[in-house]
Design a protein around this nucleic acid. Sequence first.
DNA 1: AAGTGGCT
DNA 2: TTAG
Length: 205
Amino acid sequence: MNDLFPEPLPDGITLLPRQADAVALLPLIDAIAAMSPPRHLTVPGGGSMSVAMTNCGMLGWVSDRSGYRYDRIDPLTGRPWPAMPAAFTELAAGAAAQAGFAGFMPDACLINSYAPGARMGLHQDRDERDFAWPIVSVSLGLDAVFLIGGTRRADPTRALVLADGAVLVFGGPARRMYHGVRPLKAGHHPLLGARRLNLTFRKAG
DNA sequence: AAGTGGCT
DNA sequence: TTAG
């Protein structure tokens, strides 16, 4: 039961049900988090994000008081982000190909950790160089309600449930749409406890 | 500006 | 309860 609404998904959105190989990413995520720990980034204006973030790959998405950017260096450690494991690249490229984006080779993977109550306000992903490449999102742990709107922030939104192991590919016309995540509900996952992890793969540079 | 909370 |  993925759709809260019966209508077909917006053009450019592909939702793949639970991918059996997604659970294999968990120990790799732990290793990345040991090198570049998830942290609550500051946003322009001075607020703090409720989602804890880290990255792997050549580029990582970061925010601070001065704005958003991709950076080769983790500002917390002063070192490059951990390398992107081959299993990450393979899962993302395979999902993108199934959604019609052959040749997707991500250079950035943003790893988001949601505790109960954590949310992501409506936003566009617009810090990447080429919007022709999709964004591939892998969900692990607790279910989340994903919101997808239009190209203007005030456009009405629809809701999708992103369950453990689900992979969402966000490309074509959907690439520029506002999207977000409702506050995470409390719950328990056998491997992750009261947590949701989300990996978003991008071709940023 | 990917925040948050309060007001109308 | 939702929109702004």
